[in-house]
Design a protein around this nucleic acid. Structure first.
Lengths: 147, 147, 147, 147
DNA sequence: TTTT
DNA sequence: TTTT
């Protein structure tokens, strides 16, 4: 029917917060910054930063919990989702989030080690793999398309 | 530094509103719907619709004014931008918009004519061209890269 | 590790050819045209067409067999794959193909009916759904979705 | 009319070769590797590498000449272009290339310095900016297109 | 507020 | 070999 796709390369603003729903499903939240620079009319170089609310589910949330840390450069592919909630005064408010379907750690080991040891299995792998969210609509054995 | 890219294919919810700033710059706003379907646990087919606030500037706003109409299927490539404003009670609120950098009319003439005549120059062209926003950072003669 | 992503909106050049491997896996092949227009120095409008070799596997190949026809406007998301083969003179040759991971029929019913009847279940539905390739690496069984 | 978009994140295979056409236009060529890993039926982890022929024009070619080096991780956004040429036996052959419209250096300074000094103006800045190709359709003076 |  |  349609396409709702977001591609971001940016830097993590804070370590992820990871919650576990009653169902056991993990959800991770963290801000990701992208920035744009342009030269204003007066010749000055201006940089603006955009903050994206990243939401990751299940396996990707687990990955985030293990490998995503403040400052890290990430590639995120996902979709836009705006949801409403009631604020403390009972007013309806909206928040737009990016549900990540795929994530990449960017940069090489050097960037991503902090104090970690080079031989750490985790930190070594953190610099490489792509992580994909299995698509929710596609059950195992999806050959019997419902349309 | 980073990438902030959105790709949408969806349907226009309302005819665009086009304003002209004091500077003469045109701005168009309209909602675009994307929808997602999946099969719930109980086997029911569920469709959710996401509404995107599209903002187009300058030439793209002019194009929107001429060719974009309610119901039309569009391809939009752009970037996410969240801005704040004060609501009527003086509270700070946020709205996330998609600034379009490129736009495509999708479908063929048949879709896009309504009651219009086939020979109408406008409706005929409406079904084809791609429109690109010249990049604001890139003035004429951009060879003197600032780095 | 990396990202290899292609997004195409174009027109199908020929009806798909669908083969079934010994394993039973279906594979569909068809050409997709994208075109670009620009104004040449002499003021003439020039259009160039690019042909993409689309390859779809399994469920997407089945969908292509049923719904994709010459002339149809499609959205394809996938990845680039170059493979080598030996031509009839024993020379190694290369061909670049687009492996589709997701496909969209674009336009509305009007476009996609040809001479077909409006009540045809198939052609009517053909104008809407998104089809996704389940990712091969992702095992079965992550069904406890929280939404 | 259509969309022909490629998004790559990968590693540069060789230092760019930069040529200057008679018109003075710069062209850079280099290979970029993306890799995919998946678990085969037998449980083994398999990695396949895809090589992309990157072509950059004008300002982007200049940037490539200065900052792009073997091993570097890059984000490239562009389009697919297949062209034919005659091989040494007079046979027509095809090659598919990625014309880059936008490029990002990924990773942080640490990755990209090799033995270089941190204070090097070039290498320091190399880790950040986005570079965009002014769109060819857009007049304002970059008219001597080689194609 | 769209589309199927 | 498509589409406008």
């Amino acid at each position: 029917m349609s396409v709702n796709k977001v591609i971001l390369v940016g830097n993590v603003g804070k370590d992820p917060e990871v919650r576990h729903l009653d169902s056991g499903v993990a959800v991770a939240n963290f801000p990701l910054a992208t920035s744009e620079s342009y030269t204003a009319k007066n010749g000055e170089r201006v940089t603006t930063t955009e903050w994206h609310n990243i939401v990751l589910w299940r396996g990707l949330a687990d990955v985030a919990e293990k490998y995503v840390t403040k400052g890290r450069q990430l590639y995120i592919e996902g979709r836009i989702r705006t949801r409403s909630y009631d604020d403390k005064d009972g007013n309806k408010r909206y928040i737009t989030e990016i549900y990540g379907d795929s994530m990449q750690m960017l940069g090489t080991k050097a960037d991503n080690q902090g104090g970690g040891t080079q031989s750490s299995q985790a930190s070594q792998q953190a610099s490489t793999p792509t992580f994909n969210e299995p698509e929710i609509e596609e059950p195992a054995g999806d050959d019997d398309l419902p349309f």
